[in-house]
């Protein structure tokens, strides 16, 4: 369950940002021009357990900011978010990886960041290797992995965690067709298990097919939250 109440997030964009104490104290440096960007404004939504929710909107409409707030990466400027259940979020795939470590060592590290112990990962290692199709490369350094291989590995690890809520940001934009289909099959399986899923995508066919409800965001505001088909129509009205 996820519930937002009057949720708002503002970013202060500092032009000529002062990042040193010296600059802050030096009266001769130019004044900072601060622009406030309202990434999310007064948002009230409720996502029930077991629902699969899509979020659509143009670039910069606040999709990722909202997901980051739900995942507790960012703190809201105003309002509240209530969540019940373990959250696993995949905001960008492959970011937790360290180039100097092997795929296997990275699996332990990334898994730990996602909340899994070494024993738990060892138990699931076969599945992770199978899903990512990287069995032969587990002792290779990540630095020689292609971006596609990194994505496959990180997704395979993340979905092994024990979560109630899964947050996916644009993950279907990466990986080849074969892997995308695999991800979608996994998504269906998770849906059947009653997991709550929140995902953003520019692929509206996918949104249409899998989500129960969809949130349309524009300039940080809620335009529509409800039936997916209608949501897509609303979205098309905006971009006209």
């Amino acid at each position: 369950m996820i519930e937002t109440k009057n949720l708002a997030k503002e970013f202060k964009i500092r032009h000529e940002k002062k990042t040193t104490i010296f600059e802050k104290m030096n009266p001769f440096t130019r004044k900072e021009r601060i622009e406030t960007l309202k990434a999310i404004q007064n948002l009230n939504i409720q996502i029930n357990k077991g629902e699969c929710i899509g979020i659509i909107g143009r670039n910069g409409s606040g999709k990722t900011t909202l997901l980051k707030m739900i995942s507790k990466i960012l703190v809201p400027t105003k309002g509240k978010i209530k969540t019940r259940g373990n959250i696993t979020s995949i905001i960008e795939l492959g970011v937790g990886f360290q180039d100097d470590l092997t795929a296997k060592e990275n699996t332990y590290l990334y898994g730990a960041i996602m909340g899994m112990t070494r024993e738990a990962i060892n138990k699931k290692m076969k599945e992770i290797m199978g899903f990512s199709e990287l069995e032969r490369f587990m002792d290779t350094k990540i630095s020689s992995f292609s971006s596609g291989m990194r994505v496959r590995l990180s997704y395979s690890i993340a979905i092994q965690t024990d979560f109630d809520i899964l947050i996916l940001d644009e993950i279907f934009a990466v990986g080849d067709k074969n892997f995308q289909e695999k991800c979608i099959r996994k998504l269906e399986e998770l849906k059947k298990q009653g997991k709550t899923i929140v995902l953003t995508s520019h692929n509206h066919d996918l949104i249409k097919k899998y989500t129960d409800k969809t949130l349309v965001l524009d300039k940080g505001k809620k335009i529509w939250y409800g039936e997916t088909l209608k949501a897509i129509k609303k979205y098309e009205e905006i971009i006209k």
Binding site: Q98, L101, Y108, L109, A112, I113, T117, R118
Partner: peptide, 9 residues
């Protein structure tokens, strides 16, 4: 567990 894994890494 995370501290252990990060320290090892």
């Amino acid at each position: 567990n995370l501290l252990k894994e990060m320290a090892i890494a």
